[in-house]
Design a protein around this nucleic acid. Sequence first.
DNA 1: AACTGTCCCTGCAAGC
DNA 2: TGCTTGCAGGGACAGT
Length: 282
Amino acid sequence: MPELPEVETVRRGLQQNFVGRKITKVEVGRERTVRRTSREALIDGLTGVKVLSATRRGKYLICALDSGQKLMVHLRMSGRLIIAKPGASRPPHTHVVLHLAKTDSVESELWFVDPRTFGEVVVFDPDKVKTQMPDLVNLGVDPLTDEFSPQILQGLFKNRRGNLKALLLNQHFVAGIGNIYADEILHLAKLRPDRLPGRLTTATLTRLHAAIVEVLNKAVVAGGSTLKDTQYVDLDGQTGSFQDEHRVYGRAGLQCLTCRKGRILMTVVAGRTTCYCSACQH
DNA sequence: AACTGTCCCTGCAAGC
DNA sequence: TGCTTGCAGGGACAGT
């Protein structure tokens, strides 16, 4: 499922294949994908417009447009952005198609494909972000920015109750961590998912901070994780390889690869399937 | 206020 | 074999 590393990989693809190009035509199939506004709003907002940049905040992709508006794409569970040649056969669940003007005499299309239809495509006015995109305003710190430090983490976790994993998954605190990377991060930091965030020492928080940065950066280098379930691929249709480096996710019942002593347990924490080592996570 | 549970949706896999 | 059932999960929202 697209989390920060997958979204960052897609962003890099957009940088290569989408930024600088002009959108000549917009097709919207399923209206649920544009539910925040409307089919007409997306078509009006994108037709004839040039793309200036592709940035990311947490799991949100944001492209600045020469109209002054911005394009937001969220892949949610099963969304994919694919660059394709005009006329290529579109996969099932291709809900939005952007036709791009020729560059170097090559025409192409950007497809938004999303079987589970949780994903979203929106054009919004940056001046009205508070009312049009409240979730974007309430987003926490992005862990791959310089702003993210052990001190910031300490401030966010201070006096927090609930459990550690739920806090990692809460996008209002740290933005971009989903279920897979939360489990991998907690394993690397040697912390149980049910630890109390407010009780962690400075040394432990420093270790957790380092684990967040390390896991996410390694996953970005690997091009994200592709699972059987959602078949995440990048803009060119390439799979990621970080699933080969997973140490706990999807390994329930197996021996721990890190300590070789414990077994990987599977429980439910914060309403999500959770895998951790019974021996080396405390 | 802060935390937990439910829902949205489809494809796939397990079980009868 | 062919059906039904359950599960996967990001984030909004309702409930406690």
